[in-house]
Write a protein that binds this DNA or RNA. Structure first.
Lengths: 235, 235
DNA sequence: GACTTTCGTTTTGGATACAATCTACATTGG
DNA sequence: CCAATGTAGATTGTATCCAAAACGAAAGTC
């Protein structure tokens, strides 16, 4: 038998799988900000022991998605309005930078990849709950793929981390108001500048896009007092 | 007996202690970029089991200080010149922002705290190896304390993470060249602007400070080919 | 001689076990 | 009736154990 080993896909690591799924569930609001995550419960859900669950959670805590209170477990990070504004302030900086770099370093494949995501978003039924959910996932993917074209791993890492931190709130707001039109239009604009390699425009538009998202969020979630559970927060 | 429990110091979490010490050792170059960290070895060093060690390492990996390759363990992140430049590009953005916010939101205590650090740095003997080490630690602390005055946890988190990513290289360069004068002067300048609450100046100076550090690094480490071990890297 | 293949060792990933701590609730005393 | 106390159960943090994968060196093959 010849060297099969070289071709075999490397064995998956449970904590990675848990990390991914847990992140997805937090971003999509299955676990709400402030909610405490029980290790045993999650271990049972994923049919693993608590060890990989704990590892996944400690990573999510470093990402800023969870908070850790010793001996009291991990909870979904709960942001107040001021913190949301803070994160968006950072996103505006980083994403302008990332957008500019993306436009400068993009390859033909990148344009195709991003275009594909936009097309998929166009095809969705924004009225159905399912369509909304898919739109939101594709929305996240759009930005990730766009920035990935910069070929700058650290830029992408920071941008993704910041985005993930506020993503639950973005999705909450979008689900409530159901307005995707402005975002759609801005995505198209960004894409067009990206396609023609206009770095300054992409940067400027990305920053604006952040700013507008922050504005919608502020308005949409501003009135409602914390709709969230009662966990007193640190970090 | 009255409620003693409330006064007892909350029980320490081993993985936190390991995280802290491990980070310090990585930043100070005890574990060099590219080096693989054995779980058993570290567990023995800290007299704990491998579990808290793994947890600490998974956090450090999320911070960008370590890289994780499934089933092959964690290694100290090895950056090439391009990545170092990338990180400094981000730092210039973030730290200008952070510096500005710090100047705007600083309290009297913050000024005292930062001044104290600068004084300690002044008092050190920069020739001795020990003095250098202390200077480098205080240098890190200076920036952390300065930015902390912004009262913006997310800003501080991102700034610290980016700084930690390149800190081993900063310390390596500084240890080799032994030139602290420019940094000292810039710290003083930043502090003075910080003291008088000149947000624009602090922002501008922080950005410049980053730029200069990056420049020194590029020159100091540019010539030497990777002095590091042989680990082939991903992420 | 270079390239596999084998096999033993090392090291990792994960499960289980157990002690320490926290939480909730019932009880007591004022 | 309310606050403080005590206690049982739930939950976390860590140690220990085991199977599987990676590594390295020796032996075999063309």
């Amino acid at each position: 038998m010849e060297t099969l080993a070289k071709w075999r896909t490397p064995p998956p690591v449970l904590s990675d799988a848990v990390y991914q799924d847990l992140l997805e569930r937090i971003l999509s609001g299955v676990y709400k900000p402030g909610e405490v995550l029980r290790q045993e419960e999650l271990a049972a859900r994923y049919l693993v022991s608590r060890v990989p669950v704990r590892e996944a959670m400690s990573r999510l805590a470093s990402d800023g998605v969870l908070v850790f209170r010793p001996r009291r477990g991990y909870a979904v990070k709960l942001l107040d309005a001021r913190e949301i504004e803070e994160v968006f302030g950072l996103r505006m900086l980083i994403e302008e930078h990332a957008g500019r770099l993306a436009a400068q370093h993009r390859q033909p494949d990148d344009i195709r990849g991003v275009a594909e995501i936009l097309d998929k978003m166009d095809a969705l039924d924004r009225q159905s709950a399912n369509g909304m959910r898919e739109w939101l996932e594709l929305n996240r993917k759009f930005h990730a793929e766009l920035f990935a074209a910069s070929r700058r791993a650290h830029v992408c890492r920071v941008a993704a981390s910041l985005r993930d931190t506020v993503e639950p709130y973005i999705r909450l707001e979008a689900t409530i108001t159901g307005t995707f039109d402005q975002a759609d239009a801005e995505h198209r604009e960004i894409f067009e500048a990206f396609q023609r390699g206009d770095a300054d425009a992409v940067g400027r538009l990305c920053r604006l896009h952040c700013e507008h998202t922050a504005g919608r969020l502020k308005q949409g979630l501003g009135q409602r007092d914390q709709p969230i559970s009662r966990t007193p927060e640190g970090t």
